[in-house]
Design a protein around this nucleic acid. Structure first.
Length: 551
RNA sequence: GGCCCCGUGGUCAAGCGGUUAAGACAUCGCCCUUUCACGGCGGAGACAUGGGUUCGAUUCCCGUCGGGGUCACCA
């Protein structure tokens, strides 16, 4: 009896690995093309850190004309969630990050290197596990979880390194005959990797982001096939990324300490190891301590948050790119109108330590992104967001032609307005422009400097009767407001008022403020001339009359 | 605790042996301006710490401290 007999007993139907090696040949790609992937577990939501990794991988594959694929790592059925794959696919789609290969719906996929869902690759893992078994590089382990736990406790008590290795790996030294007999007796088992490593030896690893890192060799006989017949992450990673011909594994740096194991696995399986790039996670300040963004505590950890809040997709991506390569910011300033895809992303320029998430900066980017959009784009985005999250805004936006005029205020010039950083800001910034709301609502007019009722009414009435003409050009229009100021006994110019403040009760700016508040119910608005032009003659008069009536 | 990674203003960060230690966001002041937003100008604000090495260390080495990661039949 030999290893072959044992392997045949455990996996009688597994194919030869040559079958898979031929089925998934080397990819025919140009020199330097990077093949990378996003490989999440369908556990419920996509984390912003996951999106970050995916973005980085996508940038690199696009830049090198390679392949970016989506693989679903669903080997832990306990944690799986209904429609988890759909959630992942849709989240990527929301950010216009569509993979070249992989899952496209809950059950469908595209690409020749599939299946892209690990639970569907069981036969493949078995073939490779069998391959290891045949060579004595893996073995069945009959220890129960309780026994393994006991070993760990003993190790802890003795203050020695915990784990299933060396002398502690009881089943590692079972003879083939003993193993076969146990299996035939119906004893339960899992498959472990027989590590050839020694803890007192070091291996060198070059990580694209972290640089040179030395680790002790792995000597743990880790589980490769679990009791449920599915592989563990480590084994699946080696088999899948080899067969899918991944050139670059771009993943979160919580995996860094596993590379010693992974490299060993690749070596023992006879695979060429991929290059690794371990990304520092996005952190959050928690009472002075840094910690990873957590789904439970931080709403902004889930990518769905950005969609709900209406933070523009490109703002999120630019912010992430900014964290990834700080040169992006300079590039953006030099190329304000270029598509972000044109930025030359550098993997090795990524920061080695984790950045604290900065919502304020994100929103600042959002402001700039939106300020560069046309009125039409702002309209479309606002409407799409409103349809899902704000019925009232959706109703406001029914009159497209008028909405476009509203969004066109102070837009499209060299210094566009920057007062909207996310779609959820839109309603507040435009509601007062809509007559069916404004004229029918109980507006509270909070006058400031000039707050005497008679005085206000006198100003408003005089403006309607003697000065307002919707057809005036801007200069004429403003001169008339100065005339109004003068007529009411106020200074025509702010400057002359400041020189002799005792001479007048106020100046043209105070008069403008009265008009602005009467017109919009607000102290602060965009350019009042443009507002009047958009509102139109009738609306302006109705609004001023309403303000008079309310006094 | 073992192993690994990291430590430049409040935040993101350039710089990597000799710099007045960039820039962005935030903050403060001024200017522009009929308000706000924008824009312009300016201010305040940093090399964790102790030893080396060196003519000279933010940059190199070691220790300390601080932060993070990892030590599963989870990924």
């Amino acid at each position: 009896m030999n290893y072959k007999d044992l392997a045949d007993l455990i996996f009688p139907n597994a194919k030869e690995i040559s079958y898979y090696e031929e089925k998934y040949p080397e990819r025919n790609l140009p020199e330097g093309a990077i093949v990378s992937r996003f490989a999440p577990s369908p556990t419920g939501f996509v984390h912003i850190g996951g999106l970050y990794q995916a973005l980085v991988a996508l940038e690199m594959t696009k830049k090198t004309k390679g392949v970016f694929f989506l693989r679903v790592e669903d080997t832990d059925q306990k944690r799986e969630v209904e429609n988890g794959v759909t959630g992942i696919v849709n989240s990527l789609k929301d950010f216009n990050m569509v993979p070249d290969e992989g899952m496209i719906t809950e059950t469908e996929e595209i690409g020749k290197y599939g299946p892209y869902k690990q639970s569907l690759r069981k036969d493949i893992y078995e073939a490779y596990a069998k391959y290891l078994l045949e060579q004595g590089k893996a073995y069945p382990c009959f220890c129960t979880s309780e026994q393994v736990e006991e070993i760990r406790k003993k190790q802890e008590a003795a203050k020695i390194r915990p784990g299933y290795y060396g002398v502690w790996a009881k089943c590692r030294n079972l003879t083939v005959e003993e193993s076969i007999e146990k299996i035939k007796n119906g004893e339960k088992y899992i498959i472990r990797f027989k590590s050839p490593g020694r803890e007192d030896r070091k291996i060198k690893h070059h990580d694209i982001i972290k640089g040179n890192v030395d680790f002790p060799e792995n000597d743990q006989d880790i589980v490769i096939i679990k009791a449920d017949g599915l592989p563990t992450y480590h084994f699946a990673h080696a088999v899948d990324d080899h067969l899918m011909r991944t050139t670059h594994v771009i993943r979160s740096d919580e995996w860094l300490s596993s590379v010693a194991l992974h490299l060993q696995l690749f070596h023992e399986l006879g695979f060429k190891a991929p290059k690794y790039a371990h990304i520092s996670p996005i952190m959050k300040n928690d009472n002075g301590n840094k910690r990873k963004l957590s789904k439970r505590k931080d709403p902004e950890a889930a990518v769905s948050y950005y969609k709900e809040e209406g933070i523009p997709v490109n703002a999120v991506k630019e912010y992430l790119l900014n964290i990834a390569n700080s040169t992006f910011e300079n590039w953006r300033r030099a190329n304000p109108d270029k598509d972000m895809e044109e930025f030359d992303f550098q993997l090795n320029k990524m920061s080695v330590s984790g950045a604290l998430f900065d919502m304020i900066k994100l929103l600042d980017i959002g402001k700039t992104v939106i300020s560069k959009m046309t009125a039409e784009e702002v309209y479309e985005n606002s409407l799409n967001w409103a349809k899902k999250y704000d019925k009232e805004l959706e109703e406001l936006l029914q009159d497209k032609e008028y909405s476009l005029k509203v969004f066109g205020i102070e837009r499209g010039n060299k210094k566009p307005r920057k007062d909207i950083s996310k779609w959820s800001d839109v309603k507040n910034s435009i509601v007062y422009m809509f007559d069916n709301k404004f004229l029918n609502e109980n507006v509270v007019y909070e006058y400031v400097k000039i707050n005497n009722k008679e005085e206000i009414n006198k100003i408003l009435q005089a403006y309607i009767n003697e000065f307002f003409d919707i057809n005036d050009e801007k200069d004429t229009w403003f001169n008339k407001i100065k005339d109004l100021a003068e007529k009411c006994g106020y200074a025509r110019e702010v400057k002359e008022f400041k020189e002799n403040p005792e001479k007048w009760p106020g100046h043209v700016g105070d008069i403008s403020t009265v008009l602005r508040i009467a017109l919009t119910g607000r102290q602060n608005t965009p350019d009042m001339y443009e507002i009047m032009q958009v509102l139109g003659k009738d609306s302006v008069i109705k609004r001023l009359e309403k303000a008079i009536a309310k006094n």
